[in-house]
């Protein structure tokens, strides 16, 4: 780690920044950021819990419309992409740059596949007039309206996070190909992995809450 020690002590003098590398601090910051993401979704989960408590029947009726097969497939896709991110970090630690990049490519493909599935699900619902303010919702009970309102907000916000995660991973891949990330300096990759796993974890909860209410 002597190389790193030197980085530590070269206080850069441009514009006043004392830039140094601190992997543990970087990881800590990433975890704190994940907490904010968790609580962002947490507010929505709390709303879901409250309304499911209040409108248990309406939620069940509405969820019958969901295709739990697509939901399960998407769950498997995200779980697999989580595996590939974890494997890419393990590969990076072993200096297997090509394998690490390959695993990240696979992750990105999984993410895109997830989004395509999501797109078809949403367009199916929208086609049937089920969207906030849509014609089909007018004849539905309050519970069903709230179910679909939350469904769009929560899966939409989750989809947004998938997209952000994909961008994050793409940037990391550029870093890897330029050897900015190496077997001794891979905290950025690890942080991208942490973010991707959080996206996965949120889906792990969204799946049973929206698809499995029979």
């Amino acid at each position: 780690m002597t190389e790193h020690s030197e980085v530590m002590h070269q206080g850069e003098s441009h514009g006043g920044a004392h830039v140094h590398r601190d992997d543990e601090g970087s990881k800590m910051a990433m975890w704190l950021f994940l907490f904010t993401e968790l609580l962002l979704f947490g507010g929505l989960f709390l709303l879901y819990g409250a309304y499911r408590f209040e409108y248990a029947d309406g939620f069940k009726v509405a969820a019958a419309d969901m295709n739990s097969f697509i939901g399960a497939v998407n769950t498997i896709i995200l779980l697999t992409s989580s595996l590939s991110v974890a494997l890419s970090i393990a590969a990076m630690q072993r200096s297997q740059k090509k394998l690490a990049l390959g695993m990240l490519w696979f992750t990105i493909l999984c993410g895109i596949a997830f989004l395509i599935n999501k797109y078809f699900e949403w367009s199916h619902e929208i086609h049937n007039g089920i969207y906030p303010g849509g014609p089909a919702l007018e004849n539905m009970s309050n519970g069903e309206v709230l179910y679909f309102g939350l469904y769009y907000v929560m899966t939409g916000l989750h989809g947004l996070h998938v997209i952000i995660g994909l961008i994050f991973i793409s940037v990391i891949m550029v870093f890897i190909s330029r050897d900015k990330i190496t077997s001794t300096n891979f905290q950025k990759l690890e942080n991208a992995g942490l973010y991707w796993h959080l996206v996965d974890v949120i889906w792990i909860f969204l799946f049973p809450l929206f698809y499995l209410l029979h």
């Binding site: 709303l47 209040e54 409108y55 303010g133 009970s141 309050n142 309206v145 709230l146 309102g149 907000v153």
Partner: peptide
């Protein structure tokens, strides 16, 4: 913008939440 309903009493939403 969209009238999701989560806070709108007319759609079953709960302002106290």
């Amino acid at each position: 913008f969209m009238g999701v309903g989560v806070f709108d009493p007319a759609l079953g939403g709960d302002p106290i939440l």
